[in-house]
Simulated assay, not measured.
Amino acid sequence: MYEGAVQELIDELGRLPGIGPKSAQRIAFHILEADAEDMKRLAQVISVVKERVKFCTVCFNVSESETCSICRDERRGDDIICVVEESKDVIAIERSRAFTGRYHVLGGAINPINGIGPEQLHIRELIARLGDERITEIILATDPNLEGEATATYLVRTLRPLGIKISRLASGLPVGGDLEYADEVTLARAIEGRRNTAQPAPAAPLVRTAPPSQEPVSAS
């Protein structure tokens, strides 16, 4: 344990996702040893981000305006909405250049252990958007892990009665991985090969074989 401000800095850094105690301590001492002007700029950027950046009132992507640049882009199609967990997933899919529709950011995934249920996500707002008759398909692009699959399953069950085509990203994305780490080619193939979740895959035909003949064995 360190004294005063140093320990407070380590504690605050340790609250960030993916930062353990050792990483927090290493970052804290880097801040202490770094040039003061560099750290002032970092603190200023953090302050500006918290002041300026908000969430799009339509799709909940990060934006410095009331609506994000994607929602304002009239060249994009209005018939397909791609549903993702976080804003970073929007950037990942945009890098693939395989999708030209609209997005809806849920703000996370269903995770009962962390107290995140459907009520904490932007699902009600998604359902409200589906009142637009131009929308013909929903692509579920949640992460291919336990929480993402649970979220996708819930959305399929909730949205299916609305009669809109629901598809899921196709194979190509590694199970247990995050969209932000997928390369452009993998994401492009996943989007182009998405499957319809409303129609279960046909069962394999049952092939019946005749039992072997039971001929008497003659005594020699």
Results as ranks from 00 to 15, higher is better:
28 A>G: 04
29 F>Q: 00
29 F>M: 09
29 F>D: 01
29 F>R: 02
29 F>S: 03
31 I>R: 01
31 I>H: 03
31 I>K: 06
31 I>W: 01
31 I>M: 02
32 L>V: 10
32 L>P: 08
33 E>R: 05
33 E>Y: 07
34 A>C: 12
34 A>I: 13
35 D>V: 08
36 A>K: 14
37 E>A: 09
37 E>C: 03
37 E>R: 13
37 E>S: 14
38 D>N: 15
39 M>D: 02
42 L>I: 03
43 A>P: 09
43 A>G: 11
44 Q>I: 02
47 S>I: 01
48 V>D: 04
48 V>P: 02
48 V>G: 02
49 V>M: 00
51 E>I: 12
51 E>T: 11
52 R>Y: 01
52 R>G: 00
52 R>M: 01
54 K>A: 15
55 F>R: 15
57 T>G: 15
57 T>S: 14
57 T>I: 10
58 V>H: 13
58 V>D: 11
59 C>I: 12
60 F>M: 13
60 F>L: 04
61 N>L: 05
61 N>Y: 05
61 N>E: 12
61 N>T: 02
64 E>D: 01
65 S>P: 09
66 E>H: 05
67 T>Y: 00
69 S>L: 09
70 I>Y: 14
71 C>M: 08
73 D>G: 06
73 D>E: 15
74 E>Q: 05
75 R>K: 14
75 R>M: 14
76 R>L: 11
76 R>W: 13
77 G>E: 11
79 D>T: 15
79 D>L: 13
79 D>E: 15
80 I>S: 06
81 I>A: 08
82 C>N: 02
82 C>T: 05
83 V>R: 09
85 E>D: 03
86 E>H: 08
86 E>V: 01
87 S>M: 06
87 S>N: 03
88 K>L: 09
88 K>C: 07
90 V>L: 10
90 V>A: 06
92 A>P: 09
92 A>Q: 03
92 A>H: 06
92 A>W: 14
92 A>K: 03
93 I>T: 04
93 I>H: 06
93 I>Y: 11
94 E>G: 07
94 E>H: 05
95 R>S: 11
95 R>W: 13
95 R>A: 14
96 S>M: 04
96 S>A: 05
97 R>L: 12
98 A>W: 02
98 A>S: 12
99 F>W: 13
99 F>I: 11
100 T>V: 09
101 G>E: 03
101 G>V: 12
104 H>N: 12
104 H>Q: 10
106 L>M: 03
107 G>C: 07
107 G>R: 05
107 G>V: 09
108 G>V: 09
109 A>I: 00
110 I>K: 00
111 N>T: 07
111 N>A: 14
111 N>I: 04
113 I>H: 07
113 I>C: 06
113 I>L: 11
114 N>M: 05
114 N>K: 10
114 N>L: 13
115 G>D: 13
116 I>R: 03
116 I>G: 00
117 G>N: 14
118 P>G: 10
119 E>S: 14
